[in-house]
Nucleic acid binder design. Structure first.
Lengths: 222, 222
DNA sequence: ACAAAAGTGTTATGTTTACACCCATGA
DNA sequence: TCATGGGTGTAAACATAACACTTTTGT
């Protein structure tokens, strides 16, 4: 029998993990990706996807890796905060860095991992009981994403490209949690260059709509 | 000889530390508290105060404890970000949570700790060479504190209470890095209730000035 | 008397919000 | 032809920014 590799320190070292709050939008409702825990503690409860920091990656890279593993998507992640109550995980001390991401939920290919019996989208307005302190993490992320949405075009990440302004507006309204005026919205988007017109139309149920694409200069902004 | 206590894990656990960027203002110039390292690595270089997370405290509590130990002051701390490049500390892997605090630098009683040969204030505009990635941490904190100062009355924390509006304005200008209009400033401060008039005057070099105090309702705002 | 800092209002500009009708298309 | 969603402009309210003179007091 192999002796397990052990790591020894002179002082206690908490484990470091990331939890990732993946926001998606469905029919104008904001949802988050949750995983049903297959093991104790909180077996059978819903929890945020997440995982432990690997030796060769930054914490942000860890969050991006978790996102990729859980959804098959690469997307920008944003730090929400640190969750470090000593007893937040009953097994051992785990300090978690919470990140949020906005993705097109229909593009996500959700993988139910080894320790996850199920995974699925849940409306933020109708969350189940959650494991650990994940309810608090989601609440903090909900506030953070609202702030971010005021300043950066993250709503464009929630919808497939290219998109109509109506689609973008629905996403933005879901993030902000309040209705927006259609005409003012168009002005804002074009003035801030959050989206630029593509020379194309999309045929909808009624009149066809002009489509827009995310501005390339928005890729790196904050 | 006593066997040292050892902590053993099945997976590698980075150490977790906080670094704290303590801002102060002197003659209208923004400064930060630095400590001269007394030990390798970076012996003799200037570094941010900081320390390792203890088992019974949250990371924010750790930052507040470090602040208290280094300055004798209790003050609000704000998360700046995580610094987690695997090789940022040559000894072992250390993930650092950077916090910032604004204090009255003349009230600080700086303690040169066991591993710190010296400690002192340095103007942000004239920083020495810094240990580890602390230059990047200060740069990030500089940006963060500017954002915060736009939204919250943190400038009041940089000056002794009670204060004149001229003093507060100098602090705010140092945080924002741009000059402000005296009349507009007075209006903003009173409208936002960042400070309320105390029924008192302070005799200065010339005409005496009315003094203000931080509004109690600002204690918990964000 | 003069130098230095305190105090005080108004105007212009820009930003944000509110609001209503016509158009194109598919059913 | 009608129901549905797409597209468009203007005016009011509000917030922000610019600007100059008088007062007090110590030297």
């Amino acid at each position: 029998m192999l002796t397990p590799i052990q790591y020894v320190y002179a002082y206690p070292h908490p484990a470091i993990a990331t939890d990732i709050v993946v926001f998606g939008i469905d029919e104008g409702k904001l949802g988050v990706l949750l995983i049903k825990r297959g093991e104790e503690p909180f077996k059978g409860a819903w929890a945020l996807p997440g995982g432990f920091l690997q030796p060769d990656e930054t914490i942000e890279a860890c969050a991006r890796r978790e996102l990729l593993e859980e959804t098959g998507l690469s997307a920008e992640v944003r730090l929400v905060g640190l969750f470090s109550e000593p007893m937040r995980d009953p097994r051992e001390r785990v300090v978690s860095a919470a990140y949020l991401a906005c993705v097109d939920y229909r593009a996500a290919r959700i993988r139910a991992g080894s320790d996850a019996a199920h995974a699925g989208w849940h409306l933020v307005a109708e969350l189940p009981e959650l494991a650990f302190d994940h309810a608090a993490i989601i609440a903090a992320s909900r506030n953070r994403v609202r702030e971010l949405a005021e300043a950066a075009p993250i709503a464009t990440r929630l919808i497939p490209q290219p998109f109509t302004l109506a689609e973008l507006q629905a996403a933005q309204e879901a993030l902000l949690g309040r209705p927006l005026d259609k005409r003012n919205f168009r002005r804002d988007i074009t003035a801030r260059q959050w989206a630029i017109p593509a020379n194309a139309q999309r045929r909808g149920k009624t009149r066809s709509a002009g489509v827009f694409a995310t501005c390339s200069t928005n890729e790196n902004d904050d």
